[in-house]
Design a protein around this nucleic acid. Structure first.
Lengths: 135, 135
DNA sequence: ACCACGCTTGACGTTAACGTAAGGGTGAAC
DNA sequence: GTTCACCCTTACGTTAACGTCAAGCGTGGT
């Protein structure tokens, strides 16, 4: 315990192991102002807040949010003055995103159905090879 | 009708209007060897075959196939020797793609459900602002 | 003294599918 | 004869989210 205090601070590697991301990713997120690690000399030390944000970022990615969108949302979320207006905007953005995702899912389903149709056709073609010219 | 024969040949603009794509797109597809328009002087003239291929390409895009994947599929389809083997390979590729799409759809659905949950939470938060400190 | 390790910054590379601008030709219409 | 309206080629630009070096600093251990 000869290092000063670490209370809740994590090195870049600990973060990588904890969240399954590369160092490059964390540095990239810092450059994009999504994370704000402290410095001990030149080394980054990630705070509990950073971990919270990163968790939200990664979740957002699963939702299909871009990093830029996440930055904006976090900035709102972050103003501390989680005033009704801010919260409502965040809510609206999320709802729009949800609508997008549902549209995307529906399109995907259409494409799936269409492709299934094609596959049946292909299967028939293949089958017709098995009984050549046998009508 | 003073131009020679056009039987089934279309200029780039006619193609663009017919398929709702830009000239750049058609030239790009030619460069990628997805289309093979004839030339009259320097001008491109798209054949019926090109139209058939383009139709398949655009459909493939809706399915989420990359241009490279479509090129490979078209090349197989194209060998004329639509032998069983070739057809089966095309079929397999399409089936794999279908599986991918279904996985993608399922993930999307998960994300949608999760996001819906978050939204409910957000809605409660917003509601709590409307009745401040009124427990 | 010296090595290995981990961390740092900086900067170019990657991928897909085109967009966009620059520079130039051709034929028809006015 | 010149202005349109299209067509062409060449080639650099775009976007996202990092990957991949390269080169250097600091330090704990032998």
């Amino acid at each position: 315990m000869e290092d000063g205090d670490h209370k809740d601070l994590m090195t870049i590697r600990q973060m990588c192991d904890a969240f399954d991301v590369t160092p490059r990713t964390l540095r990239f997120y810092e450059a994009k102002e999504l994370l704000f690690p402290l410095r001990e000399g030149q080394k980054r030390l990630f705070t509990r807040r950073d971990r919270g944000r990163l968790k939200l970022i990664l979740r957002g990615k699963r939702f299909g949010f871009s990093l830029e969108e996440m930055r904006q949302l976090l900035d709102l979320y972050d103003r501390g003055d989680a005033q009704e207006e801010q919260l409502k905007r965040t809510y609206e953005v999320a709802r729009e995103r949800l609508a997008q995702m549902e549209r995307q899912r529906d399109e995907l389903n259409e494409a799936i159905e269409e492709l299934k149709g094609q596959l049946e056709w292909g299967a028939e073609m293949i089958a017709s090879f098995r009984r050549p010219a046998a009508e």
